[in-house]
Simulated scan of single mutants.
Amino acid sequence: MNFKEKKVLITGGSSGIGKVIIAELVSLGTKHIAVVGRDPKKFEQLRMEFTDISFLFFEGNVAELDIIKQISAEIQSKWAGLDILINNAGVVSAGKLEDISDEDIIAQQNINVTGLILLTKYCLPLLKLSSEAAIINVSSGLGIIGLPFYAPYAATKAAVRQFSEAVRRELQDYPIHVMTVYPTATDTPMMTTANTSNMDTAEAVAKSTIEGLQKKSIDVFRGGEQMLNNRILNFQNPLEYDEKVKGMYEAMSKRASQHRAM
């Protein structure tokens, strides 16, 4: 893939994994990047850090349909097309299900799933104009293996996985590659309130993402051999994995007790 000519739209691109993905794209020669985020101060930081990039910035929440329509309309007006859509924005609110507020449960669904689907819908006409397009959806390891205290979040990330699979098959007649990324716990602002250590780096996740796109992978899994073994065990013998989770229960409870990034 020749990244120099690509026009890229990324949500949640002003910090964390998204910002490092931008750095990876810039290193490969990408010049046109549209960024969706909620903090305009971070847009200025991006502009100062990547001075040669032609940015489009959209302040807003991908859960808002009006914002999504504005994004697609302005990209149509300014660029007349789109090559790569990276659905990276996400929020999390962890804890016992009965303790998570109704508002946080709804917001996780709206931002992590509904907004992702709607933005993809409104960008598809633009992506279909490209001779070599891609959709990258960022899920989570929790979208493959559900763990305690993350039920609403895990549900959203499992939905992202199934959406990617379905839309990939739906778009078989178009040169649009669909790929899903499954990070494990990653050292980003989203994890600041999680009581955990030994996290992955945003740089490693971003590098795997771009390498996966270059290889035309449909899934990019982080977590190495341990995660692979866990996925196999959870699929083949979920009751046995239940027993394994019992040994992780207290640690998971501690990790989730203050974990909220909304």
Rank of each mutant, 00 (worst) to 15 (best):
S197A: 11
E5R: 07
L9N: 03
Q70V: 01
L82T: 06
S93G: 13
F221L: 12
F55P: 00
E203G: 07
G212T: 01
L171K: 08
G29M: 12
Q236G: 10
F58K: 00
G13D: 08
A166Q: 08
E64A: 05
K4M: 13
N234A: 13
A154R: 00
S72A: 15
Q109C: 05
N229K: 15
Y153F: 14
V92W: 01
T188D: 05
F55C: 02
Y122A: 05
S130D: 10
G212P: 06
S27P: 04
A204H: 09
T30Q: 10
Q70E: 13
A251L: 11
Q76H: 12
V36P: 10
M179N: 03
F50C: 02
Q108F: 00
E211W: 01
V36T: 11
P152V: 12
V113P: 00
M1Y: 11
D102T: 10
V245W: 13
S77V: 04
K6P: 07
V91Q: 07
K19D: 01
E170Q: 12
G95N: 12
T51H: 09
M1W: 04
Q70G: 06
R222G: 06
V113I: 15
D102H: 12
N61K: 09
I71K: 03
A251W: 07
T156G: 03
H32A: 08
P175S: 10
T186Q: 10
Q214H: 03
N88F: 05
G146D: 13
G12R: 02
E74K: 14
S27K: 15
I17Y: 05
E103Q: 13
K246S: 11
H177S: 12
A151L: 12
T184F: 11
V8T: 06
E165L: 09
K19R: 15
V138H: 04
V220H: 01
G223C: 14
